[in-house]
Design a binder for these strands. Sequence first.
DNA 1: ACTGGCACTCGGGTTCGGGGAGTGCCAGGC
DNA 2: GCCTGGCACTCCCCGAACCCGAGTGCCAGT
Lengths: 339, 339
Amino acid sequence: MLDERKLAVLRAIVEDYVHTEEPVGSKALVDRHHLGVSSATVRNDMAALEDEGYIAQPHTSAGRIPTDKGYRLFVDRLSTIKPMSGAERRAISTFLEGAVDLDDVVNRTVRLLSQLTRQVAVVQYPTLSRSTVRHVELVLLSTTRLLIVLITSTGRVEQRVVDVGKAPEDALLGDVRARLNAAVMGARLAEVQSLVVDLPEAFAPDDQPIVASIVSAFLETLVERPEERIAVSGTANLIPLGHEFHSSIRPVLEALEEHVVLLRLLGESTAPSRLTVRIGHENPYAELAAASVVATGYGPGDETLAHLGVVGPTRMDYPGTMGAVRAVARYVSQILAEE
Amino acid sequence: MLDERKLAVLRAIVEDYVHTEEPVGSKALVDRHHLGVSSATVRNDMAALEDEGYIAQPHTSAGRIPTDKGYRLFVDRLSTIKPMSGAERRAISTFLEGAVDLDDVVNRTVRLLSQLTRQVAVVQYPTLSRSTVRHVELVLLSTTRLLIVLITSTGRVEQRVVDVGKAPEDALLGDVRARLNAAVMGARLAEVQSLVVDLPEAFAPDDQPIVASIVSAFLETLVERPEERIAVSGTANLIPLGHEFHSSIRPVLEALEEHVVLLRLLGESTAPSRLTVRIGHENPYAELAAASVVATGYGPGDETLAHLGVVGPTRMDYPGTMGAVRAVARYVSQILAEE
DNA sequence: ACTGGCACTCGGGTTCGGGGAGTGCCAGGC
DNA sequence: GCCTGGCACTCCCCGAACCCGAGTGCCAGT
């Protein structure tokens, strides 16, 4: 049904269309790619490809453009991920090495990714739940108000202010701090709740209310607020350079500010080194029907702490984009593993 | 030279143009605003206004649009800041009250501001330099690696990892922690450097290298990285709804990602309750010649810890935007003062 | 099974010509 | 002296007509 040559034609159409951004006709195809056949033959193949739904015509008697289904076939069977060049790898590496803390890592990553792909890059901050507790600190702000700081193994710092009602004594505070740290240090965040829930019972009855309020505020620092945990860069790339463009970018811009949407876009993807490509209508949001998402997980070792990826038009350079996403994910994982 | 009526005509032109987004002619003016004169008179006034450079014609025999100079006069002398309605004030207040920490405050503020003004909102994180040290914490991560955490009076947490070369003893660490906190607690960040530079001398010669490296890493947490300290929201508002639009928004989008640029845009503005309005070419960046910035400082009390504002087309609703910016700045200042 | 040829289609760009909104100016009235 | 009604003029915008060319589908021939 789809012989070798038809696949070659489809590949050529995708490559040309991505390059020229214009519907590609049979004549142009045989000129640019030296398939050994005439344009008439290509036309027949194109008719077949159109019947199967891989390509479409914007209007009668215009060239063909790939459909989502066509891109899908291209990604799955007709292309290979394009590895980064040595120079690019070095540039990535040195740029990321310079990061001083987790925020910096994420910010550098997202900028880098948008520049490499010339598209919109999205990076999720490493999730808390898989990371472990490094340290808990209690700081008295005023007589009754206490700042709780949680530091995790991924370098995240969470904080919460709590009013404990009555002034705690220094000794008590030191005791709570010591027991709290002893209980949770090194534990995964997901396990923490069960480890501290009994903590107040170890204290004198008079002190238990204070301790209980500290513990409950501490637990609050663990709840994720995923809507704040995303970095986006390169939105200007949505606007093509020379070309005129569709008003379809407004909904995309809006979606990019909805962090919940972004998380869902990235979120269902998978382990590091596996790339998720979602093309056009495959996206869970109708507003992004003209957009594709290339995403992957990242994190130290094989763990997936978070996801990153890019959003661009369905007409994108998939091999190159996939190569860049994969490379950046690897390097940032490496950086995280070192810390 | 500019009598009362000419000013009224200018005001009417600005208001109509902001509303209709189309050049406004003498006929339409006398219809919509009941100035007590005929269109011919208005035409004469318009000619005078054009001579003075307050308005311009896109083409001969088209209506007039305000120039930057015209907007400037409008803002300075012809309009008053439009106060928020009671319902709006309540909405602002309750929305901001819900914030749980500083990040949340900033994020909520920027979203709120972009929704109120239907424009791009920019909020700078409170600066470190004016705030004071609340607490410094040292956490041993491995035998030689130390995490330094700085907590400021505005709720910011800065952190830095340092490798001290050889394993410090617990007692030493406790001593450093105590002396460090004693030295800097309550001090303004700008003063901190001079307060700790002599600290190593108080220790035994053997320990001084360790202490020195801790102190220098600690000082690093103080340097601001302003490029990471900005939140932006509402970029989708750059794209007008029904209207076609100029490709001039791409440079604006790019500028919005350059945090250094944004800081300069906001940065030269002033104390809370004073609004800075920069119109078109008054902006320090040529790319933003078609944009206006309305900004103000904010912070607890009369202190200006940081700035916030909106960026929009020169053709914007200045009174409404200024009202929204002022109101939001006041409320967020209030929130900060409470913490 | 592929190729060359041919008639046909249709979108995009160009030209042309009203229609209309708006202006500048002038002469006359309060 | 200032305002007004009137009038001629200027362009912009919009739609219609039009041509051109790229591209297609099909068919007959190799």
